[in-house]
Design a protein around this nucleic acid. Structure first.
Lengths: 298, 298
DNA sequence: AATCTGTTTTTTATATAAAAAAATCACATT
DNA sequence: AATGTGATTTTTTTATATAAAAAACAGATT
C-alpha cells in the first residue's frame, strides 16, 4: 500500500499556514491553496476534510472559514513524516558504513528489507539508485555486490571532482566582466566574510554556503553529466556532515578561508593562482572526507 | 511471473555443445557443465531434464549419455529468448526517437507498459536506468519527463567525452615505454590496417574495433565515474549504429583512418599532434551521431 | 468568461504473491 | 578426501492488487 506521507506533511504545513491567520478568516480557494502548498487539489481536499473533521475549519460549499487556531496536539506526528525512499536511503547509508557491511560482500536484498521493515520493492529502488553512485554494483546473477564507501571510492570521486572543477574554473575566469555570475560571486564573498566574522555561532551553516559556491562555479556550462556527478557528491557530503561532527567548527573555518582565497583568485583572473587555491581546497576536502569515513567505519 | 529466458537460452547453448559431440558420449558432471555454461546447477538440471524429456540424453544417477545429435527442431524458438530488460530497453529507445515522443513531454509509464506488453515494474526499471543516462528525468510529483535524444544531449555527451578522452590521452602518452598498453596499441594498429585493406567487406566490424580502441585509451586510469559515462556512450552508439546504416562503409573508412592518425600521434608521444588527431576524430563522430539522430527522428 | 467545487478517471507508489534461479544441505559415490 | 547427486531452502524477478495522489471532466457560482 502506498504511504500517505504527503498527506500528513501537507496537513502539518497547512496548520502552519493557518496559525498565521485569525479565527473567522475565509480561506483561499482550493486551487490557490493547492498551488501554495505544491500539491494536487486532491491532496488538498483530503487535508481540508481532515481539518474540518478536527473542527479547525468549517466547510460548506465554497466557503472555508477558520474556526480556531491550530494547537500543538493538532499536528500529525509519527515516524512516517519522512518519505519512504528517504528513510530507506538513510538506513542504507548507515548500514553501508556500519560493521555489517564490508566491501566486496554480496548484498541480500531480502534481508535488508526485513531489517529496515520495508518491502523488497523499496530496497530494489534504493539499490538501483546507489549502484549509479558507484557504491555497489549488480552482478551477472542478479545479486548486488557492495563496493562500499571506501578510500578508493573517495579517491575516484575526488579525481572526477577536481577534473570538473578545474575545467569549470577556467570557463569561469573567462566570463565577460559584465556577466551576472560575477555579481553573485561578490555576494557570496560577502557572505563568507560575514560567516567568518561570527564563525563560532554560524559554522553550522557552512554546508549550505559551500554547496551554493561550488554550484555557481560549476554552473556556467550546464552539462547533465556533470550535474549528475555533483548530485552524487551532494549526497555523499550530506551524510558525511552528519557522521563527522568532530572539529566541525575548525574544519569549516579553514574551508571558509580557502573559499575566500579561491574567490580572490577568480576575481583577479589569474588562472595559475586560482588553480592553486582550488587545488588546495579540494585537497583539504578530500582528506576531511577520508577522515570521516574512517570514523564512520571504525 | 518471472520469465524463463535463461532456461531457454541455456537449453539452446547446451544443444550447441552437444552437437559437437557424438552419440554415446558420456557428458561431464553437473557442476562442470554448469560452470561451462555459466549458470547455476539448478538451471542446468532443468535443462538436462528437458533434454532427457526430448530423448536427446539418457539420465540415470550420475550417468549422462548422449543418445542422438540435436536436430534443428529441438531448439527452443520464440520471441522470449531475449532477456526482458533488454527487450524493454530496445523498445524504449525506439519509442524515444520515434514520433510519439517529443522532448519535454511527460512519460506515462502505464501507457508504455501497455504498448510494450510488459508490466509497470519492467518499465520503471527501464526508466530508472535511462534517467541516469540523462535521457529523461524524474519530476517532483513522481512522473517522468522525457528529455530526449536531442542535439543538446549529444552536445553535452560529447563535451564530456572530449574532456575525458583528452585527459586519458595525456596519461596514455606519459606511460612508460615498457607498459603493456603499448603492445596492445600496436596490435590494434595492425587490426586497423587489416580492416582498411579489406574495408569493403569488413566495414561492419568497425564498431567492435572502435569500442576496444577507446577503451584501451580510457582504461589506463580506472575510475568508476568515467567508466559509467563510457557505458552511457556505448549504449547510445549501439542504437546509433542500428539506426543509421546510411553511408556506413564510407563513414567507417574515414573513422579507421582517423584512428590510425590518432594512434600514430600517440606513438610518437607528441601531445600536440595527438590532441589534434583526437579532436578531429571526435568532431567527426559528433557530427555523425547528430546526423543519425536527425534521420531517426524524421 | 473565468474560476470554483464535486465527481470520476488515471496514474503512481508500495506490498504481496508466485515462478525462476541460485545457494545450501545431506548423503552417496568414486 | 574429494567430488557428485538429490532434495530443500533462500533469493531474485516479475506480475498483480490496492491505496494515495494527480489529472480530467462536468456543472455550478461568481
Amino acid at each position: 500500500m502506498k504511504t500517505n506521507t504527503l498527506y500528513k506533511r501537507t496537513f502539518n504545513q497547512c496548520l502552519d499556514l493557518l496559525a498565521r491567520s485569525t479565527p473567522g478568516t475565509v480561506l483561499a480557494s482550493e486551487p490557490a491553496l493547492a498551488a501554495r502548498l505544491k500539491v494536487s487539489r486532491t491532496t488538498l481536499r483530503a487535508v481540508l476534510a481532515g481539518l474540518a473533521g478536527a473542527g479547525i475549519v468549517a466547510l460548506e460549499g465554497r466557503s472555508k472559514v477558520l474556526l480556531r487556531l491550530p494547537r500543538a496536539e493538532d499536528y500529525l506526528a509519527g515516524t512516517d513524516l519522512e518519505p519512504l525512499a528517504d528513510m530507506v536511503e538513510r538506513k542504507f547509508m548507515t548500514w553501508m558504513v556500519g560493521p555489517d557491511c564490508s566491501p566486496g560482500q554480496s548484498i541480500n536484498a531480502l534481508d535488508l528489507a526485513r531489517q529496515f521493515g520495508v518491502s523488497t520493492s523499496a530496497i530494489r529502488e534504493c539499490l538501483s539508485t546507489f549502484s549509479h553512485f558507484g557504491l555497489l554494483e549488480r552482478q551477472s546473477n542478479g545479486r548486488w555486490r557492495a563496493l562500499g564507501l571506501t578510500v578508493d571510492f573517495v579517491a575516484e570521486l575526488f579525481d572526477m571532482r577536481e577534473f570538473m572543477e578545474f575545467r569549470a574554473m577556467e570557463r569561469f575566469v573567462a566570463l565577460p566582466s559584465d556577466h551576472p555570475a560575477w555579481r553573485t560571486l561578490a555576494g557570496l564573498e560577502q557572505e563568507h566574510r560575514d560567516m567568518l566574522a561570527d564563525i563560532d555561532r554560524r559554522y553550522r551553516d557552512f554546508s549550505n554556503l559551500d554547496h551554493r559556491f561550488h554550484r555557481l562555479v560549476n554552473g556556467t556550462a550546464p552539462n547533465r553529466f556533470f550535474i549528475n556527478i555533483q548530485g552524487v557528491m551532494s549526497v555523499i557530503f550530506h551524510y558525511h556532515y552528519q557522521w563527522n561532527k568532530k572539529d566541525e567548527r575548525e574544519r569549516n573555518k579553514v574551508a571558509v578561508e580557502e573559499h575566500l582565497a579561491y574567490i580572490a583568485a577568480l576575481q583577479t583572473g589569474d588562472l595559475q593562482q586560482a588553480r592553486h587555491a582550488c587545488g588546495e581546497h579540494l585537497k583539504t576536502a578530500r582528506s576531511t572526507l577520508l577522515t570521516s569515513i574512517e570514523i564512520a567505519t571504525d
